[in-house]
Amino acid sequence: MSTDRDRVLAAAHVSRETTRRLDLYVAQLTRWQSIKNLVGPSTLAEVWTRHVADALQLLDLMPEARSWLDLGSGAGIPGLILAIAGPPGITVDLVESNARKCAFLIEAARLTGAPARVHNARIEAVIAGHRGVDVVCARALAPLTQLLDWTEPLLKTGTTGLFPKGREAQAELTEAAARWTVAHDLVPSRTESAARIVRVTALAPKSP
């Protein structure tokens, strides 16, 4: 009988080595969860479908991207998973202000050999020093209007934004439209029928 893990890995077409590294990540997440409370406790039993698969689907939306910036990385979802499973040459910068979560990210990246850099810093400080990033992403971090405020310096210069949202995606876009002209599309999530991924390809503030 196939498990959630088997189904997620088969759908993602990952290599044996990537499978080994994802298993290492899940094992570390499970071990650290009891100390750090990295994810919602009720979601740990569904880690492959709720977290791993949810992150992996972003790779297919930007297959040519090599430089990623993940805001509010927390348990490394999606950023560390992207670094583990991404194509050759990928690099992912993980931004997390919580030092205890950064300790997990650093250790998990070391054990899996993921090409990830951990920044224990505020989002604004990291974005101020980043240019030329292919993709900026954030999951379960803040409303879309706040995400656009943070990422405007990147989105207005060619970076693509990928922001997984739940059923409230359209409402958040409507709210954001009061302040921003947002070039975007809504991509159905593979892991939750009502969820959407907001893909932002250009951003400009509206005139007062």
Rank of each mutant, 00 (worst) to 15 (best):
E107C: 05
P208C: 01
G89N: 06
P41E: 12
R167P: 05
L58R: 05
V8D: 09
G129H: 06
A176V: 03
A125H: 13
E64L: 14
V14C: 08
E175T: 12
T91M: 01
L22E: 05
P41T: 09
L141H: 02
Q146S: 05
T157C: 01
I106G: 06
R31P: 07
L56P: 05
A99G: 14
V118L: 08
A204H: 10
C137L: 07
R199W: 12
L144P: 09
T49M: 05
V200D: 15
T160S: 07
E46Q: 15
I127M: 13
S189K: 08
V126M: 10
G72K: 11
S189G: 08
D149A: 06
T201E: 02
L80S: 15
A194P: 00
T174P: 01
C137Q: 05
S15P: 00
R21F: 10
E168N: 10
A11G: 00
E46F: 14
A114W: 10
S97I: 11
K101I: 15
I84D: 07
R20V: 03
R21P: 11
A195M: 00
G129Q: 06
T145N: 09
D70V: 04
V136F: 09
I197H: 07
W32A: 14
A85L: 13
K36E: 11
Q28C: 10
R16P: 03
A53T: 03
A109G: 06
S42I: 00
D149K: 11
R21W: 04
N120F: 02
A140N: 06
S207I: 13
L80R: 15
H119F: 02
H119A: 03
R131Q: 00
P153V: 01
D70A: 01
D185R: 14
L173C: 13
L61H: 06
D93E: 15
L22G: 12
A194D: 11
A27R: 12
D93M: 06
D149C: 03
G89A: 06
L9F: 07
D60T: 10
A169W: 04
R190I: 08
P164A: 01
S97G: 06
A27T: 05
S15F: 03
V187P: 00
P208D: 08
L38P: 06
T19L: 09
G89H: 11
L24T: 14
T18W: 08
R139D: 10
A194N: 01
T174C: 07
G89C: 10
G40M: 07
L105K: 12
D6A: 13
D6M: 09
T112M: 04
T191L: 13
D149W: 11
V95L: 14
R21G: 11
L186Y: 07
H130I: 13
E96I: 08
T174H: 10
I197G: 11
A140C: 05
D134M: 03
A11Q: 02
A27D: 10
L24V: 03
D54Y: 11
V200K: 00
L147N: 09
V8N: 11
